[in-house]
Design a binder for these strands. Structure first.
Length: 280
DNA sequence: AATCCGCGCAACCGCATCCAG
DNA sequence: ACTGGATGCGGTTGCGCGGAT
């Protein structure tokens, strides 16, 4: 019925809860900490029959010594059949960076545009990868300076990477197919992910990053008009020419309220290639 | 081989919001 | 309008693994 992906390899490896203050008591008390395979099966089987929702009563009816919140989290972040696991693709990275620049730490909102990805996963990605990068550059992750790095260095490189990949493979017309891999997860409605058409998101995103009107001409994704990409030098010219003029203060959420744009000088980023290498 | 250390990620917590009674 | 339970969300914690020493 269900396939358990990832997670604990055995009951033994998970049934003890480590020493981190987790109390796993079997005498009728609530369990905390790592979920066991048995618990996963109980939860999945119950939901397959009765559906999700009413998490508190679901927990007890399913015979789980867990809180409703814990069951909901486990289901949404791990057990749901359409949850996508594994490396965040360049396309997804680009989307995350762009959407975060617009909305800030609205992980759930961002996740709705990445089918199969959970807010938790995106949040973790941001904290581990993006914040690490900010740290390497000695700047605050919310600083305008770092946002300029994202916009003018990181995102263009991601676009390069996506386009480079697309040279070897036919243009992808359906982004959801990209992010879902080739598996046949229907990724059904993807819970709200359709409130903004993915093509529109990508058109806007690439417009933001490249500043080129005819982005549809070379958009690696979501475009039927896609053709051979322009030389990278052309794109970088456009990116870097426009970079310092553009204000990224359009977004009150992500702006962090600094209000003053840092003096961004890319001459200072001598080690940027090294840092970039860490992100690959 | 043993130990240390940093990273990734699953899970928890507290607060906010929604909604039915 | 009020209240309490259910749900959603963002921040934080800590375990386990793998690489470095």
């Amino acid at each position: 019925m269900f396939v358990i992906h990832g997670g604990c390899a055995s009951l033994n490896s998970c049934s003890s809860a480590g020493s981190g203050g987790e109390e796993v008591e079997l005498g009728g008390e609530l369990r905390r900490g790592q979920w066991t395979v048995d618990e996963d099966l109980l939860l999945m089987n119950y939901i397959s029959v009765h559906g999700e929702g009413k998490w508190n009563s679901l927990a007890s009816r399913a015979g789980l010594m867990r809180t409703g919140k814990s069951c909901r989290l486990r289901w949404l972040n791990y057990l749901r059949p359409d949850v996508r696991r594994g490396n965040i693709t360049p396309e997804e990275q680009l989307l995350i960076l762009d959407l975060h620049s617009r909305w800030g730490n609205r992980w759930s909102k961002i996740a709705k545009h990445l089918p199969g990805r959970t807010d938790n996963e995106i949040k973790n990605y941001w904290r581990t990868r993006v914040q690490k990068n900010a740290k390497q550059l000695n700047c605050d992750v919310n600083s305008l300076r770092f946002k300029e790095v994202i916009k003018n260095i990181w995102m263009p490189r991601l676009v390069d990477k996506i386009r480079a990949n697309s040279v070897n493979t036919p243009p992808v017309k359906d982004y959801s197919a990209v992010v879902n891999g080739n598996d046949n997860h229907s990724c059904s409605p993807c819970e709200g992910s359709t409130d903004v058409p993915m093509d529109a998101v990508w058109d806007e995103l690439l417009m933001d990053v490249t500043g080129i009107d005819q982005q549809r001409e070379y958009s690696p994704i979501g475009s039927e008009l896609w053709s051979a990409p322009p030389p990278i030098s052309d794109l970088t010219t456009v990116w870097y020419d426009g970079a310092l003029d553009s204000s990224i203060n359009e977004n009150p959420v992500a702006g962090g309220g600094e209000g003053v744009i840092d003096d961004v000088s890319f001459g200072e980023w001598d080690g940027i290639d090294d840092i970039w290498a860490l992100l690959d």
